[in-house]
Design a binder for these strands. Sequence first.
DNA 1: CTGAAAGCGCTTACAG
DNA 2: CTGAAAGCGCTTACAG
Lengths: 323, 323
Amino acid sequence: MHEVARLAGVSHTTVSRYLQDHDSVKPKTRVKVEFAVKTLDYRPNLVARSMRTRRTNRLAIVLAAGSHFPGRQLAAASGTAHQAGYQVDVVSVEGGPRARSARIDDLARSGQVDGILAISSIISRSKSAGGVPVVESENYDEKLHVLGELAGAAEVREIVEYLAGLGHETFLHVAGDQTFASARNRKSVYLATIERLGLRSVGVLGGEWSAQCGFDAITSLPEGCGVTAVVAANDVVATGVVRGALSRGWRVPDDLSVFGWDDEEIARFTTPSLSTVAVDREGQGRDGIHRLLAAINGEPAPQPVTRKVNQLIFRESTAPPPS
Amino acid sequence: MHEVARLAGVSHTTVSRYLQDHDSVKPKTRVKVEFAVKTLDYRPNLVARSMRTRRTNRLAIVLAAGSHFPGRQLAAASGTAHQAGYQVDVVSVEGGPRARSARIDDLARSGQVDGILAISSIISRSKSAGGVPVVESENYDEKLHVLGELAGAAEVREIVEYLAGLGHETFLHVAGDQTFASARNRKSVYLATIERLGLRSVGVLGGEWSAQCGFDAITSLPEGCGVTAVVAANDVVATGVVRGALSRGWRVPDDLSVFGWDDEEIARFTTPSLSTVAVDREGQGRDGIHRLLAAINGEPAPQPVTRKVNQLIFRESTAPPPS
DNA sequence: CTGAAAGCGCTTACAG
DNA sequence: CTGAAAGCGCTTACAG
């Protein structure tokens, strides 16, 4: 910046002023500074700027490291943040909720970001945490829809009711990673619904969000257990379940119905295509950023008006049980 | 930090020294500082630290925004960076190679990161760029394996040769997004190999890395075009191709062979499971970071010794053509 | 072993 | 409209 000032024949104060607002210097000066900036291809040191202004125009999104990468949610979150003039740092943290929380505590007071969105579960923040605003996505979603309602509760209920309506009586749940609140919720609502409707569950297997784990779950079932319907943690798991069933000579959906979750692009094209839940990942990403921006600006949390309600999609992997 | 110093009854210089190296202050002092830091739950302002040290211990990974999120590569890159004591910022940029390059130019001199790894293609950097080291992943991979060899060239050649060996004579390529160097490479090597072996190609369709695009490609083919083998851009596209074929009454692999790319977990479990190319995404991520770290430390670029060669995997989606 | 001082590159009142 | 000065929170020679 000093070099720019020298070349333009002005003080660095003026250069800085020009950078903030081109019209705050008089035309003659502006031309000189403009020229110097271009000639020297000057780029401001953003670290120094942040140090002075106490702002970074960066937001951090903290998530669990691992293969389960929430691409759609991140893309939407990034886009929303960019529109508001923020850059997004995606920070993936190895370990569980505790590790993420520790990282967030550091980050919140590092001066490196203006706010933090946690899209994997974290342990609740210590009261005295201090620092920049932190917004949680997963726990918030738990409270969505109806007050006190668990995330995905309505959908799991609908899935089980739909399958029961087709005539299924004996179920299996292949669950997702139980360190995720969403996976825990689905499991408990599954169990509660089975109970409430007087159905039978042969158990809850899985726990990994992986196709292999779906495959193993179904192939490990004892012969004659009578399962005719599977509620899978997501579409990847469901794909493993379908393949596992086939490997035992069970046809899908003739002998076994399988329900997925996420409406992944690929699930529309597999054979059989998967019945699944269309989740508004983009809406989740947008809402998270909106709530974070509100917190940063000291405004009240906005209503997630743009959020589509998750929808069940019925495809080829579900049908009435064999008679 | 001042508060810590006051509580500990020392100068902030001493607190800083303690933070750098606990043993550089005498035991008695150390205990006092330790106590003050814990009591006040002090976290250093990393922005101020970077400003002073000219180091951030952060690396940026720049990639194209969009659904095509390279999760495995990122996870491996992150992990490698963490081991070396660096945090990783994932910066996804909307727009093409030019936009990414512009962002990199800013970032390289923003003081916010110590180095940048570009894993989507960028335009070559201007000589006078300056700033922190920038390493390209995609263009580098182009030069991998054999000198002057295009990325994936050997694999595409092997795929076509394998299919030709099974007796296939008429091919279709459903390509990926042509703004990706890897997609362009595969297309041109596909074309060259078809030519060299005296085979027939009914064309190159697609251009999107999407299942829908694979579906559309195959369903748009004129009846009687004689295609019996498809080289798809990746497993997602291949899944769309398979479904499209089925929708026309073509059985896979009996009537049509389909080859994917990436060895995605799900492709092992679909029916038919996909013949594909196992790509060492983790190795790519690690290598990128290793080269970047070398550049940062002024060392010569390391050999990518850990890199597995991409391997063809033959599954149910390929077979001899109908007779 | 410890403290006072300088300085990293910016921005922003404050004078002029 | 412009410049000199202070200061953001650290680290690091330099004295002591």
